[in-house]
Design a protein around this nucleic acid. Structure first.
Lengths: 224, 224
DNA sequence: GTCTATAATGAGATAGAC
DNA sequence: GTCTATCTCATTATAGAC
């Protein structure tokens, strides 16, 4: 266990994972070569293969890290208890995570091909995402923040999932934006929010105007 | 000119383009190899290279064909004159085209890499798509079929573009659907329509209930 | 027009010295 | 842990016989 932890925390290993998350988010895991990863870090390709014998293992390590972040976000959500403010904050936090690890959503086909063993976990991730939207919307409905006709609910959930998964690719393809800043992130969140807007109640408006803005993530985390 | 036309109409050339449109729609142009294209057609790779010296040229020929179909659709739309029925029919026709050539939208990054010369034409295509949505919505607004607050219009146009571009990838990644039938196509159209539904007027409902359903495309065209 | 054979490239991966 | 050198393999593309 001690040497495993030692290997897991190796400085180079951590740098590789950080660089890969950024590169994969920018151009997708299948068009980023091992040569490019090594060059980005200023290390040799052979060294890269010392830490990860297969490209597949990089994806698996990244996914494990992502799962941990998701668990953290879920426990923060729980910690709010019945505080009504948990809904906007949860949506915001969840959206930030989807953005930071967006290649797992956007390039799911490539991930499946490179790392077939991740398939069931990716499916679970995708199911969870939709269930979380559903749960949050039901909660907001019960709290009187939103009023959605029963027959519109499923279509709205699906559209939320699609827009929040692909808005970043929209920015790239339509506006040539390759580096996403907080301004773009806010734009994307507003875009998803606009799906709900026809259904928001005055109570929601009052809530979001008085609640404090969500803590901004650290800038170095922002760039990926 | 005569021999050019002769080469353009060559039977094998046409079969190559048809097979490629289908394969590219299924798995994207960059993961479909020339070996696979040749095998699908039961011809030799060398023969494939007789008709298209570079993979890039296949993409260019396919894009030219797509542009022709778009021009046809635009002229059908014009031929309706002021007939109010042009809006639902136009949306339906445009949506069918986007679906049949969806890899140009979904795999735009891969297309750019393989065929850099197509970049400006892809940009124009994307601009046109959004402008057509905008024009149709403005027309419907003027005709009293729909009532959208000014400040919601742009967000709605963007969401329409995103959902109609990526709904097919949603079906694949969330529901494992690899072969799309007319049922799925209708599902996608309904998904886009649900974005407008909060804004539809009774006049729209009356119109769509009395208008005849759009002619279904031929089944063999459906499969791509 | 179509085939066989083969070159050229580039990406993933390994062996072994340091 | 990191490097150099090398291997294997898939994919694009070409040459030339039929």
């Amino acid at each position: 266990m001690a040497e495993t932890a030692g290997q897991r925390r190796s400085k180079t290993r951590i740098r590789i994972l950080a660089a890969c998350r950024q590169l994969f988010n920018e151009r997708g895991p299948s068009s980023v070569t091992t040569a490019e990863i090594a060059a980005t870090l200023g290390i040799n390709e052979g060294n890269l293969y010392y830490h990860f014998q297969r490209k597949e293992q990089i994806l698996e390590a990244l996914f494990a890290e992502f799962e941990n972040r998701l668990r953290e976000a879920a426990s923060v959500y729980q910690s709010y208890g019945d505080d009504i403010r948990r809904y906007p904050d949860y949506l915001s936090g969840w959206f930030t995570l989807m953005w930071r690890w967006r290649f797992f959503y956007r390039d799911a086909a490539a991930v499946h091909r490179l790392s077939p063993s991740l398939r069931p976990r990716l499916k679970a991730l995708s199911d969870d995402g939709q269930n979380h939207i559903r749960e949050a919307l039901n909660g907001m409905q019960a709290a009187g923040l939103i009023s959605i006709p029963e027959q519109e609910m499923e279509a709205l959930i699906v559209n939320s999932w699609i827009v929040s998964t692909y808005w970043i690719d929209y920015l790239r393809s339509r506006h040539g934006i390759s580096e996403v800043t907080r301004v773009h992130l806010n734009w994307g969140a507003a875009q998803v929010m606009s799906l709900f807007r026809p259904f928001l109640t005055p109570k929601w408006t009052a809530l979001t105007e008085t609640s404090s803005p969500p803590a901004s993530a650290s800038p170095e985390e922002e760039k990926g």
